[in-house]
Nucleic acid binder design. Structure first.
Lengths: 246, 246
DNA sequence: CCGCGCGTTTGATCCAGGTCAAGGAGGAAT
DNA sequence: ATTCCTCCTTGACCTGGATCAAACGCGCGG
């Protein structure tokens, strides 16, 4: 809810310093990034770019959560990515973006203009290698997502999404989610349905079912508590012992 | 069907020389790759690695097509990637593979042992940057695939798969598929169903329907001819003018 | 305090695609 | 040729999730 305060002049105090594209940078390399960075903030629900638009910068998400969406001609929408703090936005070597990017909550981006960033990518190998690593991680989670979309039931999809959110939020606190884990859903039922390839009615029904059965406890309709995390994991249909993160 | 013959001593004669991870290499860099490469061949249907196994090398697909699959405990399977000639297999910086890799047709790999390759990745920036570019492309197609899995009807899924195959096969011949395009399906109905999140019966029925309506012509059940490519494109549900490749 | 709007829940019905169950059809071995 | 296979097609039926249609509830402005 409340913004994390940090000194925008000093990357050392940045909350994502050690997980973002700059994670492997030495002090001097960091200084080069610092020289070309600037911040932007978007309100919840606000579009960041539309598919087909030019994107003049690349960026790291500092706070908040953004989504990548594809839309078909007839209006069917599918979310194809979810950007948490430290995730990278934009594609070096391409000016045009392929999908709509939307702020799901208030989002702060640490932006780098394209040309200087690409230049730096050529000169500073630690940035390129970190970016490769992050892109490979994203590819892995895209593939996990493909399994969710292609083969899981509605109930398994909801459970999987809750686990993904719990893990990413816990990641920010540097702990693993356990029993009694509590977190906020960063999105509406409709966005959840766009993520999971369902309708919002089905999302609502499945959440109600999980609630009725005590797998989750809701307060309001955004705040979730998980009394027994293993129970939730079982509902995902995945191999319970770590197969998912492998 | 018949193997492409090439001189395995000379990367210059390699059929994927200008599209694989080595695409941007200068002669001297190529020589370094050449020094650590070796070839492996797998028969159609043969496993290349299983999820969880150590993979001692990374590789480029030279000929043939391989699939990446995820399997759930109860046997549900989802294909999460399709590797065509020039595509890259394996993940630098990780020893264990996340999914089953299977040869769909006879596959020849140009392999590099992990350690020397990673070493080279550090020394030769053109390899790293090419790998980043290829990984970003794969991420884009994974996201296109997510739209297919999450939002398309069975008929649209089949049409989309046919278009993807036609494009990739045409890519090998350096032409774009047009009317009268002819290609072979590199996989069984069952594999198609694993790709598309359908059952094999639904795949079969939809192919029969497209055939009955004249959108495609089959000879045998692997060879496809597309009399009117735009007609097929319409069936994918995508924006017809290039939205798909953006 | 009331009413309006938006996000959500819940109910009733429908249908695309899954499931179960028989047949083809081609290819290799006998 | 005949018999297996293996892969594919087709048919009949069923069901999970979509669709259509009300309510509900909570925050906000008047």
């Amino acid at each position: 809810m409340d913004k994390i305060a940090f000194d925008t002049k000093d990357c050392g105090s940045c909350p994502i310093r050690h997980r973002a594209v700059c994670a492997n940078c030495q002090a001097d390399e960091l200084a080069q990034l610092e020289a070309i960075k600037f911040y932007r903030t978007y309100q919840a629900g606000q579009p960041i770019v539309w598919a087909g638009d030019r994107l003049e910068f690349v960026a790291s998400v500092v706070t908040g959560i953004a989504s990548l969406n594809q839309t078909m001609e007839d209006g069917r929408r599918q979310m194809v990515g979810l950007l948490f703090p430290s995730d990278f936005l934009g594609r070096p070597g391409r000016n045009v973006v392929n999908y709509d990017v939307t702020a799901m909550s208030e989002v702060t981006l640490c932006c780098f203009r394209k040309a200087p960033f690409e230049d730096l990518l050529r000169r500073v190998p630690s940035v390129g290698s970190r970016l490769l690593e992050m892109t490979l991680d994203e590819l892995d989670s895209a593939r996990e997502w493909m399994l969710i979309l292609g083969r899981k039931t509605a109930r398994e999809k909801i459970a999987s999404l809750l686990v993904i959110i719990a893990r990413r939020q816990a990641g920010l606190l540097l702990t693993k989610p356990g029993d009694g884990a509590q977190f906020d859903l960063p999105m509406s039922r409709e966005s959840m349905s766009e993520y999971l390839g369902l309708t919002l009615e089905t999302v609502s029904r499945q959440i109600s079912a999980l609630k009725k059965e005590g797998v989750i406890v809701l307060s309001g309709n955004r705040s979730v508590t998980v009394p027994d995390f293993d129970r939730l994991l079982e509902e995902t249909g995945d191999d319970v012992d770590g197969g998912m993160l492998a």
